[in-house]
Nucleic acid binder design. Structure first.
Length: 578
RNA sequence: GCCCCGAUAGCUCAGCAGGAUAGAGCGUCGGAUUCCUAAUCCGAAGGUCAGAGGUUCGAAUCCUCUUCGGGGCACCA
């Protein structure tokens, strides 16, 4: 039984003794017990008297007095108080309160793990950016958040599998291939006018160069026809022309190579950022493995599809969408939506309980469609949870930088973390709530180097490591496992604060995981570091008195354990020396 | 028009399954190093929690409306 449960039981016992309060009312209100972070109001407090006052038509303070008077004494509790306006505060005994330190020392990094009530098998999909350019700073936020969320959910006790959906089929890939081919032709001396709408950027040149190194040559004289129309029409005409000139087979082969190289680029950008998804799921494989047909079959079978104007439509309005959507076009080609239906159907087929998709906030209109797709293949749409990530606006000083993959005018995430460092970048990305816009000022992030909260937290841990080094140097022996440690020596207010704050770690993990709010971990660590630095400034740890020294060392050890564990969730390192 | 986010100190933001005196960093001002790492600490100043209603013993937190800002509404991906 946890101490919370124990106190709740004591409360229930006290309530049952009262004549004026009946059980039914208590059940209606619900019995809450909150843990206090400052010891001003005790370790736990209950608002039950405040809630009951109206119902029993007596003043909250009187009710609190009656209840607290009937609470049985217990060895875990030092005392119980009732206080204006009607709170009942519980003060734990010193031994009970400090006991959490022994628990942390015993469990180590396992402290706070597996706290979730219902363990789920989760497929977490994030980033899934088109392989048509390097990942930019917006994707960086998805990467940092998604990866940390995976770690957090695992810590909380879920089974998590992470995935990147690779759009390696379709028009965007044709454009990628055309862009590369265009570059090859230019290099071979073809006099071609610039075409808007093609991908630019050095990575296109890199791929072109690599293809030439591999022996690609285009000997056919290519004179592109005079093209007119919108940018899109122009690009489509160009793609068609290229397919004709080099032949569809070679075009496809070049496409595959371009995609392969782009994928390697994405993976290395991510790997160096400490992110490695368990799987890259190929959209193309949906076609080769017949999953598109399967999905179409499924939506027909469930009676959610119909034909109109030669196209196959999903009746997604039946499941909350604004309008019905095309799955198979008039010309027989499937839409992107068709791929998504098939992909999500396959996610469920692979046996996952919960599908979490981290999407950009601009995709919010797509959510109801995805749910409709899931429902139409005979799955439960509530198995899908979409997390919408708000945008990153990038600044260099006061100057706002536009981001567009097509124009090539974007800042790659690699540039960002090369500039400010992986630790700082990852921490900065996840320290804001995902549903909040993030202004990322490159100048500030670089300049902030020394003021960045991540260093503040790392420094706290490095200081602790240093204390232990000093202990060793002076020849003291500290045995963390010793049950003989006298924790009663921890009596300073700051020590009490730290101990109770450490005790909140498991519930922080749980709350943070349940609400998918990785930023809560960042905030917790900041507060913990703050408490520690304050402690450090006011207290000497390497004390001559052995009992005091060892008690404090145990406290430091616990702080270090939690900091290291929390930082790892965020994908941030814990240097022992700074 | 419809939909999704947001508005808290000069700036950047925490706090939001309602709770006791609304917090931090930066910036400003003033202090701390014979002592375990000064990437640190201690103190001061700084607030109509966008506005208006509502629910409640109690609202920054929940509900409604208003204002202002960001984003989205394809047989594109």
């Amino acid at each position: 039984m946890t101490i919370e449960e124990k106190i709740k039981n004591l409360l229930v016992g006290a309530l049952s003794k009262s004549q004026s309060i009946n059980e039914k009312e208590v059940n209606e209100i619900g019995l809450e017990l909150s843990r206090n972070s400052n010891n001003e109001h005790g370790d736990f407090s209950s608002n039950i008297a405040l809630k009951l006052a109206g119902r029993v038509k007596r003043s909250p303070l009187k009710v609190a007095e009656e209840i607290s008077g009937s609470i049985e004494t217990s060895e875990e509790l030092d005392r119980v108080e009732f206080v204006r306006p009607g709170f009942i505060n519980f003060y734990l005994s010193a031994e009970k309160k400090h006991g959490v330190l022994r628990v942390i020392a015993n469990q180590g990094r396992g402290f706070g793990s597996l706290c979730v009530k219902q363990r789920k098998k989760i497929l977490l999909e994030f980033i899934s950016a088109n392989p048509t350019g390097p990942l930019h700073v917006g994707h960086g936020r998805h990467a940092a958040y998604g990866d940390s969320l995976a770690r957090l959910l695992k810590k909380a006790g879920h089974e998590v599998f992470t995935e990147y959906y690779l759009n390696d089929a379709g028009r965007q890939i044709d454009i990628l291939c055309a862009s590369v081919l265009f570059e090859v032709l230019i290099t071979e001396g073809a006099a071609l006018k610039k075409v808007d709408g093609l991908y630019k950027g050095s990575y296109i040149k890199d791929i072109a160069e690599k293809l030439r190194d591999q022996g690609l040559e285009i000997n056919e004289k290519l004179s592109l026809p005079k093209l007119s129309g919108t940018t899109d029409e122009l690009v489509d005409a160009l793609i068609l022309e290229m397919k004709t000139v080099v032949g569809p087979d070679l075009f496809a082969a070049i496409s595959d190579k371009a995609v392969l190289q782009m994928t390697e680029l994405l993976q290395s950008d991510l790997a160096d950022f400490g992110v490695a998804q368990d799987n890259f799921y190929s959209e193309k494989s949906l076609f080769s493995e017949g999953r598109i047909e399967d999905a179409c079959g499924a939506i027909k079978k469930t009676g959610n599809a119909y034909e109109k104007d030669g196209a196959l439509w999903l009746e997604s309005t039946k499941h909350g969408d604004d309008k019905d959507r095309v799955v198979i076009r008039e010309d027989g080609r499937s839409t992107y939506f068709a791929s998504d239906i098939a992909y999500h159907q396959h996610k469920k087929l692979r046996g996952f309980d919960l599908l979490i998709n981290v999407l950009g906030s601009d995709h919010h209109g797509y959510v109801s469609r995805l749910e409709a797709g899931l429902a139409s293949t005979g799955n439960n749409p509530s198995d899908l949870e979409v997390i919408l990530m708000q945008f990153v606006t990038l600044y260099r000083g006061k100057k706002k930088l536009q981001m567009s993959t097509r124009s090539g005018n974007f800042v790659p995430m690699r540039d960002l973390y090369s500039e400010v460092g992986v630790d700082a970048a990852r921490f900065f990305y996840v320290s804001r709530s995902h549903d909040q816009h993030l202004d990322f000022d490159l100048e500030l992030a670089t300049k902030q180097n020394n003021n960045n909260p991540v260093y503040y937290i790392q420094y706290a841990n490095a200081r602790i490591k240093s204390v232990f080094k000093e202990i060793k140097k002076r020849g003291y022996v500290f045995d963390e496992g010793s049950e003989k440690l006298n924790l009663g020596k921890l009596g300073l207010p700051i020590e009490e604060d730290i101990v109770s704050f450490l005790g909140k770690y498991p519930e922080t993990i749980l709350k943070s995981a349940d609400s998918r709010s990785v930023n809560k971990i960042a905030n917790y660590l900041k507060s913990l570091a703050q408490l520690f630095h304050s402690y450090y400034g006011s207290t000497k740890f390497v004390s001559d008195d052995e009992e005091t020294r060892n008690a404090r060392l145990l406290l430091l050890l616990c702080v270090s354990t939690i900091i290291e564990d929390g930082l790892e969730i965020l994908g941030v390192s814990s240097p022992v020396k700074m």
